[in-house]
Design a binder for these strands. Sequence first.
RNA 1: AGCCUUGUCGUCUAACGGUAGGACUGGAGACUUUGGAUCUCUAUACCGGGGUUCGAAUCCCUGCGAGGCUA
Length: 359
Amino acid sequence: MKIAALVSGGVDSSVIVHRLKEMGYDPTIFYIRIGMEDKDGYIDCPAEEDIEITTYIAKKYGCKMEIVSLHDEYWENVVNYTIEAVKRGLTPNPDMMCNKMIKFGCFEQNWGHEFDKIATGHYATTTELDGKIWLSTAKDHVKDQTYFLGQINQMQISKLMFPIGDLPKSQVRAIAAQQALPSAQRKDSQGICFLGKINYNDFIGRYLGERVGKIIELETGKVIGKHKGYWFHTIGQRKGLGLSGGPWFVIKKDTQRNIIYVSNGYNPDTQYGNTVNLGGFSFITDDIWGDFEGTKDITFKVRHTPEFTTGKLEKIGDIYRIHSDDKIQGIAAGQFGVVYDSASKLCIGSGVIADENAV
RNA sequence: AGCCUUGUCGUCUAACGGUAGGACUGGAGACUUUGGAUCUCUAUACCGGGGUUCGAAUCCCUGCGAGGCUA
């Protein structure tokens, strides 16, 4: 079986090579370049060290290695998407889009199609049911990364392998140490990968600029401050408002008038919600419910968190509406709601959190 | 103009006359392959000038600022 292993130089993806060899496979290692400096030099991903480590891994395990670039595709699909979404007042999820469009999209078209399987270092598993492959959660529920894979489709999942999906993180690190992999002690990557050392707000500012607008207290309608553009703030956000007498949380945005509405207190009710409307819902493997009346018991995530929330799913036309058992903080339009079965085993599918005004 | 009240970190708010605390904001770190949230740590102040006291943010005088009252 021909396997392509996507290796980034981090611990997780390094260890998959070891595991694949253990299983008797001889994977071809791919390092995908994505985050490169654009013409203005804003995007800057320190790829050197990553490539060095990946090369070392390839040598150590005697694997073929290819460094490929999906820079333009990344720019086209992920960076543009991010900027466009933010501009519309939404809160994007670049990493999910990267998985869907780049790692398992463009890569497949260019190189992956010559392989039987594509292996990655995600904490996720696959499960075969009725002759079909389903995305299922990792053994290590805390590390589970299926949230980021919620947008992929049946073709993609049936070709994927997650060699470390059944290991706890601690063990992955232990293996790396035991094998003396250079990545053993590396910090887990965090933040949007293409940003490198630039922070998110700087990035947004570079492309969308600044425009001063009002900050209004939702309950009283009083103007209590100014902001530099609604695109710098997301629902549920506390940091960065610069208002005293808080804490203050962003509750609502008026993109037309560039106004941000906030509520005061440690736990303003306005900060929470129990219903989440998902638009453009897509099932990963199969639409297991079809059209249905009433509700389905599910668990779900509205962001990457260790725990799953329980709730009920209702179908209203094309909209899938989640009724959460617990109130959820900071439900932001543009983010994805990923739905799992009630046991939090199978990842069923996902949709984009809709603007409340849109439903 | 006269009278009264008032003046503490960027903001709000504490401190029997004994040497300035808390909250929010800001900053740093932890957590996290999105945005966020959360947790930990941390920075900054007694309006100026005189007195009275062993000792004043706290008492007195005065200057300045703020608010109010007075015809």
